[in-house]
């Protein structure tokens, strides 16, 4: 492909205050592909996701979106370029209702006229949210909050969808659903950057895998190669399955 990848990290280091969490991380997400980031606790997966959306600024290195340097750009500017980030855990506005949470996002993305349509799609995706549209998001159950977070980014169909701990807290039946939707969204042209603990799910959808370990990239390559070359790595994960 001749076009620039949607997202590219070039030798990115980042951290929190004096603490360094990433050391020279480089990888790219070409248009229309799905990349999975895996790695143990504290490896820096969340930090990578935050760097991609501008929540954490790199201390060195560059972040490119569509070939343009967005290092140091404000989070909202990155978001306007079509990077939608669903942060880890339950990231909802607890004091706003379900509908207000979604409206906030859709009004910005679709304008006044498109909002209703967006809401309808979100409720179709997760009927539970439709039943609870007036409930304060803070009082939803853990999984329901996760649905709300995901509904937002899935409906937006952004250029790049960054999802951290994608299926965390979701019941198996919902996880299946979410992955089906992800497949659809991807077919419609959205590139995916997924952080996921459930390796089998992640590997099933991902074209490329980035293995992070202690803030460094340990492996980048096609998903099936990870299976071949690092059988030992995987086996540790599979022994319980």
């Amino acid at each position: 492909m001749t076009t620039a990848p949607i997202l590219e990290l070039v030798d990115v280091s980042a951290g929190y205050g004096a603490f360094r969490a990433l050391f020279g991380v480089s990888f790219a997400v070409p248009a229309g592909t799905a990349v999975a980031i895996v790695g143990p606790n504290g490896a820096g997966k969340t930090t990578v996701a935050r760097v991609c959306s501008g929540l954490v600024q790199p201390t060195s290195g560059r972040v490119l979106v569509d070939g343009d340097d967005v290092t140091g750009a404000a989070t909202h500017q990155v978001a306007r370029r079509g990077v939608a980030h669903a942060p880890e855990g339950r990231s909802v506005f607890a004091t706003l209702s379900v509908e207000e949470n979604l409206t906030l996002s859709f009004r910005q993305a679709f304008g006044r006229t498109g909002t209703g349509d967006g809401l309808a799609r979100a409720y179709e995706l997760f009927p539970r949210l439709g039943e609870r549209r007036r409930q304060l998001a803070g009082s939803l159950s853990g999984g329901e909050q996760r649905m709300l977070t995901l509904a937002r980014v899935l409906v937006l169909e952004p250029r790049l969808l960054v999802a951290d701990e994608l299926s965390l807290g979701l019941a198996p039946i919902v996880t299946e659903d979410v992955y089906r939707t992800l497949g659809r969204v991807r077919a419609a042209g959205t590139a995916l950057l997924i952080v996921e603990q459930h390796l089998d799910h992640a590997l099933a959808i991902a074209d490329e895998v980035v293995v992070l370990d202690r803030g460094e990239v340990g492996f980048v390559g096609p998903a099936h190669e990870l299976g071949d070359r690092a059988a030992s790595f995987l086996s540790a994960h599979e022994e319980t399955v």
């Binding site: 293995v211 370990d213 460094e216 340990g218 980048v220 390559g221």
Partner: peptide, 10 residues
């Protein structure tokens, strides 16, 4: 960790 290809960018 296993490294393939050296450079990070695929």
């Amino acid at each position: 960790p296993v490294r393939t290809g050296g450079a990070g960018v695929p």
